[in-house]
Structures are given as structure tokens and as C-alpha cells.
């Protein structure tokens, strides 16, 4: 049996009276590529934001490599208004809510649905800055340049990453001047620069043409093998999802309605009704 990388247990995210993610439980094992699909507004990105610490889930437990990472139970006003399940399951356990940077430090990196590059910085600086987190230096050694070795290492690694992504020739261009597909690649390169163990991709193929989508599929496979990553992605391009995923989770109205291999999910009646059937119209 392989090691569990990400373990999500009974995760509920409630905003006011709206339950965006309802009692989601899932398991991602080392080296897998797992996809999360579902119609618009199903709560996929909210689930991502809970895992990466942008939101604190209202209830539930998230573990990373077996270690509890995020844990919460309904508190204060939410106690009365809570609309999810298992309200009492975690009341006795420790509340854990690390900030996104701490979660990234543990080894979870992400990209964004709407590209969030550092706009006026160059391609090279974008990747180099993501190396900042793991650099062994302090503000004095960095200012007075006694961290030369560390700085050189960061630059060399950023250079290697960019060369590999085919972005080395445009390294001095401002990030936003790149074509859309390259910006997506740069965002992935930047996420890889934080040395993650688990990579979360939020709609990596959004806005890409079929050719680019095809390239992306082999690209995701390549980086998974090269960096020994586990990949978890949200995607609407069904050919991409069915092509690369080992397993798929399907969300609808915040609840998990199906999980399994691509073949199993494609044959699932509820999934066809809620999501895939609609996609056929395109």
C-alpha cells in the first residue's frame, strides 16, 4: 500500500448560511494524479482554498503525510447556524489553522484559476522570488551579501527550472507580456520553485487551445515523474481529465457525488446527470 499524501476528512466550509463544501472526504496517495471535477459553483476552488489555508474550514480535518495539518469545528456563532454534518466529531481535537505560507512550507504548492503572477516582475524574478521561502539567510546576510552561496544556488535552480520549461529565452520579459499559455507554464514553474511534494493545479488548461491542452497533459506527467510529485487538479477539459487522472472525485452542490477511475466516473449515472451530460452540448 502506498503512503497517503493528503487525507481530507469530513471537511465542511460554510459562509454565513451557504454550505459551499459539504462533508467532503478524500484521500490522495503518493505519486497519483487526482482530479476534482464538477459543475460551476460546485465548491471545487473553495475546497482548494481550504486545503491551502486561504480559508479555514468550518469543520473537518486535513492531514498531510499522516500529520494533522488543518483541523476545526464549528465555533461561536457558527455553532448555532452550522448546516453541515458531524458537528461534534472534532470538538475535542486541537484547532489547527496554519497560514497559507506555512502550508506551502510543509510542501503544498498551488496555481490559481485566474493567473496570479507578480505582474511587473520579470519571468526570472517570478521564479527566483518563490525560492525565497527555503533560502537559508536572514535579512542582514541578504542585504550585506554574505549569503552569496545561497543566492547563487537560488539563481542556479531558478535558471534550471526556466530552461526546463522553455521559458529561459524570455527570462527578462515582464511576466504579463507573455502569451497566455506561457503564463500558465510560468505559474507552474513558480509553484515548482517552492519544492513541493503535492502540487495543486486550479484549472491549468483554462483558456488553452486543444494543442496546448494536449501538451499540458504530457507536461503534467513529466513533472510528476521528475519531481516525484503528487498532483491534484481541478479541470473542466474532460479529455485532459480522463487522459491523465488516476482517480477522479466529482463534486456537486458542495457534496461528493462520485469517485473512482475515469472509466467508473464516466459510467456513473449521477455524474452524467449533474455534469457530464451538460458538457456534451459543447
Amino acid at each position: 500500500m502506498s503512503t497517503s499524501v493528503l487525507h481530507v476528512e469530513n471537511m465542511t466550509m460554510q459562509f454565513g448560511g451557504v454550505v459551499a463544501v459539504n462533508n467532503l472526504s478524500m484521500e490522495i496517495d503518493e505519486g497519483e494524479i487526482v482530479a476534482l471535477i464538477g459543475p460551476n459553483g460546485a465548491g471545487k476552488t473553495t475546497a482548494f482554498n481550504c486545503i491551502t489555508g486561504v480559508y479555514q474550514p468550518t469543520n473537518g480535518l486535513i492531514s498531510f503525510y499522516g500529520e494533522p495539518m488543518v483541523c476545526n469545528h464549528p465555533q461561536g456563532k457558527m455553532k448555532k447556524n452550522y448546516g453541515g454534518k458531524n458537528a461534534d466529531l472534532y470538538t475535542s481535537s486541537h484547532v489547527l489553522s496554519p497560514t497559507p505560507d506555512k502550508i506551502t512550507y510543509m510542501g503544498i504548492a498551488r496555481t490559481f484559476q485566474n493567473i496570479r503572477l507578480w505582474k511587473s516582475m520579470t519571468v526570472f524574478e517570478n521564479v527566483l522570488t518563490a525560492k525565497h521561502m527555503r533560502a537559508k539567510q536572514n535579512v542582514f546576510s541578504a542585504t550585506f551579501r554574505t549569503n552569496r552561496k545561497e543566492e547563487a544556488r537560488m539563481r542556479a535552480e531558478a535558471e534550471a527550472l526556466l530552461k526546463e520549461q522553455g521559458l529561459w529565452d524570455v527570462r527578462d520579459d515582464v511576466a504579463t507580456s507573455l502569451p497566455y499559455g506561457q503564463q500558465r507554464r510560468l505559474e507552474i514553474a513558480r509553484a515548482l520553485a517552492t519544492d513541493p511534494k503535492l502540487l495543486l493545479l486550479d484549472e491549468p488548461a483554462a483558456g488553452m487551445n486543444p494543442q496546448e491542452t494536449l501538451e499540458l497533459a504530457s507536461f503534467i506527467h513529466d513533472i510528476r515523474d521528475k519531481y516525484h510529485l503528487t498532483v491534484f487538479l481541478i479541470e473542466h477539459h474532460m479529455d485532459l481529465v480522463m487522459n491523465i487522472s488516476d482517480r477522479i472525485y466529482v463534486l456537486d452542490f458542495g457534496s461528493l457525488i462520485a469517485e473512482g477511475t475515469p472509466a467508473e466516473v464516466q459510467g456513473n449515472q449521477r455524474v452524467i446527470e449533474a455534469y457530464l451530460g451538460v458538457a456534451d452540448d459543447e
Binding site: 486561504v54 506551502t104 498551488r110 496570479r116 522570488t129 521561502m133 543566492e151
Partner: peptide, 22 residues
């Protein structure tokens, strides 16, 4: 320096900066 770049990253996009471990 590396810290200056981190400052600029915060200026450019706080959410992205935090997600990249700053």
C-alpha cells in the same frame, strides 16, 4: 536582495506571495 524581491511580490499580489511561502 532576496528580501527586496519578497517585498515586491507582496506589493504585486499578496495572495500569490502568501501561497508561494512568503
Amino acid at each position: 536582495s532576496s528580501y527586496g524581491r519578497a517585498f515586491k511580490a507582496i506589493r504585486e499580489d499578496e495572495i500569490a506571495a502568501e501561497a508561494m511561502g512568503i
